[in-house]
């Protein structure tokens, strides 16, 4: 039943697209059929694959770096009030700033290579994961830590206790929120990647789209947009799969 509803939903969107294409004229908005034909044609070209893989690699690297840095920092900020007092004003002052504004700064600092694009995606994903992870620790039921203190044998070995607390309480407690943040961030990451790839580079789907736009090749432009959407969708699905694998108690509840 869910699959049937999904098909209905996709077919409705395609129908609406087709209707708009007819109303606006194929020169402004190509029909889904012509874009589909061109997309299949693109899929057979190594040139297109190259752009797709470059974007996928940049997005994956950015998401991984953002996740690996932001998650432990979120635990630390959530766990240590003094550290949070110093870092949270900085976090919340910079959080509303659109991360794309960092692109010129990153280009000046890191050059025109891969680094600024990866860092931009990492910063975008990292901010969202950081805020959510920090909040999930701060809002953790106090009973969980108290129970842990009751179960911990003896009063010594503070470092081992801290590491065990992260492993058995903080890490699993923050996972569902981090997975949600990752799902949300996957869309944003692809958006900023498009911006980062739209200039000062000749590789990636962002460049592919802008190049096709410049050549007024709307079918190719839409093929690029479709590929970028699929990239974002793939990250969304991967985040979902990771959540199901890492948080089985959540998926079984739902």
């Amino acid at each position: 039943m869910a699959g049937f509803r999904g098909i209905i939903s996709v077919l409705s969107a395609l129908g609406l697209w087709h209707l708009m294409s007819v109303l606006l004229g194929g020169q402004i908005l190509p029909s889904p059929l012509s874009v589909g034909r061109d997309f299949i044609l693109c899929l057979s070209q190594p040139y297109f694959y190259g752009h797709f893989l470059t974007s996928a690699r940049r997005a994956a690297a950015g998401v991984a770096v953002g996740l690996l840095l932001a998650t432990p920092l979120g635990w630390l900020m959530g766990s240590f009030k003094k550290l949070d007092l110093y870092l949270s004003p900085l976090l919340f002052m910079t959080y509303p700033v659109p991360k794309i504004l960092f692109l010129p700064v990153l280009l000046v600092m890191l050059g025109l290579g891969e680094a600024p694009k990866v860092v931009l995606v990492a910063v975008t994903v990292g901010y969202q994961v950081l805020v959510v992870t920090r909040d999930s620790i701060i809002n953790l039921e106090p009973g969980y830590v108290e129970t842990f203190n009751g179960l911990w044998p003896g009063r010594r070995r503070k470092l081992r206790k801290g590491l065990a607390l992260v492993r058995h309480v903080f890490w699993p407690a923050s996972l569902p929120s981090a997975a949600t943040a990752l799902r949300l961030a996957s869309g944003t990451a692809v958006s900023v990647l498009f911006m980062a790839e739209s200039f000062a580079t000749e590789r990636g789907l962002g460049f592919f789209i802008v190049e096709a736009w410049g050549n007024l090749d709307l079918n190719r432009m839409f093929s690029g947009i479709l590929a970028m959407g699929l990239l974002g969708g793939a990250f969304y699905v991967l985040a979902n799969m990771a959540e199901r694998k890492l948080c089985p108690w959540v998926s079984r509840k739902n």
């Binding site: 969980y144 108290e146 009751g150 179960l151 058995h168 699993p172 948080c247």
Partner: peptide, 26 residues
Amino acid sequence: SFVSQDLGLYPWKTVWENLELPLVLA
């Protein structure tokens, strides 16, 4: 050993893992 009013069972641990936890920590 203290059992709190809310029981303090970790929702992310199975029955086995909850039972085993004090021994893991020890």
